[in-house]
Design a binder for these strands. Structure first.
Lengths: 70, 70
DNA sequence: CTCGCTATCCTTAGGTC
DNA sequence: TGACCTAAGGATAGCGA
């Protein structure tokens, strides 16, 4: 189990595997974006347009932590 | 060395540490965004507005891999 | 298909220079 | 200040159910 090798930056040709990867990584990106917003006091927003999985537009926005101290 | 404990989702109060964390995580987010774009054939773009580090707007955009096969 | 598991790779906080 | 190093926590590909 687990990942076999290192990530190769290349389009995943298999449709099913690409779709699964898309959903998992989209969730991962949201988490990272939120962490950046909270930990580092920044507004973060992103848009993802799936071209060959669900052909949909996904978006996410996280406000910065309410500035308590400078 | 290495990280000491788990990441606590809370604004980092120390200005220097927050700034270092911001730059590292911004770079990490860019990498993740590009991987999502390439691996999963999606357009990805994001905007980050630093509220207390450099007070600047950072942006990033990655085009999907040119659709070779459906 | 979706969910949960986990070995494996990746990211990064804290440190040094 | 920035670049580099490393341990450790975190993300995730492949599977099983």
């Amino acid at each position: 189990m687990g990942r076999r090798g290192r990530v190769v930056l290349r389009r995943i040709e298999d449709r099913v595997r690409r779709g699964i990867c898309f959903r998992k990584r989209l969730a991962g990106l949201e988490k990272k974006a939120e962490e950046l917003a909270v930990l580092c006091d920044a507004h973060v927003g992103f848009v993802v347009l799936s071209c060959s999985d669900d052909d949909r537009l996904h978006h996410f926005a996280a406000p910065a932590t309410y500035a308590l101290s400078p």
